[in-house]
Design a protein around this nucleic acid. Structure first.
Lengths: 171, 171
DNA sequence: CATCGCATGTAAGCAGTTACATGATTTG
DNA sequence: CAAATCATGTAACTGCTTACATGCGATG
């Protein structure tokens, strides 16, 4: 699961500019992958040079010009290959858990603060997913996409409930 | 949350060799961070050069010699600083979800296979955590560590239950 | 008049991965 | 006798992050 796979995936559904790809990444896919402009534009360039995607320049007045990228047949084959390949193990990195794990000597208030902050972050992320969910329900969403959204929702809800219970127990 | 922070955290509780650090990383902390020898040894070297940890060489016969690392006062201060700093956002990357999200055209059997495999992986990870849990109960575990373990368990259980329900629905 | 949205890109650097290299002892 | 365990390390590479650079129009 590299930047390349994510971008080919997004372009496999419809043509997009780098800016729009970033938007999708930040707002719709952020619960299971990430990416920044610093990754997106160089990756688009490489994919174009490799012939996996093609670029169409749109001259705009008033706004900056934009490049709309489309996936080519070669790109489609490449992405199909990725889809049929083995699933790479997922990674979860939590600085919050590292703090807690090695923070045995932390004062109670500090622990409480850590948990409260994590709770707020998770609630925010859940809300973002729920907002997307509504948008998707209107726009239409595939059966498999629905599974991924619910995967995220279920995971967030479980964690939020757990953190809340820990906070209650602390008092 | 860099390799440096993880290693200082491990050494803040007791002296360890690089080999033992790897073992802890793979078996006890793997549900929220990772690391390989290629990261561990260079990081230990840098930390020693910076005076954050110190090395004691143990000559062994029959086995390879080993270097036992201890955290220094400077390292302890460094780690305390890390602990009191802001918590970095967590990251979750799932190749499984990327496959599902863009695999709208995947045949039903393929989707079922994907979910079954993910289910098996998650069950394995949960089992590892539960095994650790038992070990920790015997060895003793801090209150904050207990929270982190339960965080992991709750998260895994929620995902496993969800995947199982999706599998049932598919048939 | 400041900030947000639209829009694209590069360059330097870093943290970590992968692959390689070595080797004795113990266990199945 | 093969594989696992103990044990350490380097070198090349890669993939991404961070910071920088630009600029107009609309919104508040």
């Amino acid at each position: 699961m590299k930047g390349k796979d994510i971008i080919l995936g997004i372009l496999s559904t419809s043509d997009k500019t780098g800016y729009e790809i970033n938007d999708i990444l930040q707002n719709q896919l952020s619960y299971f992958c990430d990416g920044t402009y610093g990754m997106i534009y160089p990756t688009l360039k490489k994919l174009e040079q490799a012939g996996s995607i093609s670029k169409q320049e749109i001259i705009q007045s008033g706004k900056p010009n934009k490049n709309i990228y489309s996936i080519t047949d070669k790109g489609q084959r490449e992405f199909a290959e990725y889809l049929s390949a083995d699933v790479a193990p997922s990674t979860f990195k939590s600085d919050f858990l590292l703090h807690l794990f090695f923070g045995a000597d932390l004062p109670k208030e500090q622990v409480e603060k850590l948990i409260k902050e994590e709770l707020a972050r998770k609630k925010g992320q859940l809300q973002q997913l729920l907002d997307n969910y509504q948008m998707w329900q209107q726009q239409g969403i595939s059966q498999t996409q629905l599974i991924t959204v619910n995967y995220g929702i279920v995971q967030y809800k479980a964690v939020i409930e757990f953190l809340q219970s820990q906070l209650d127990e602390l008092n």
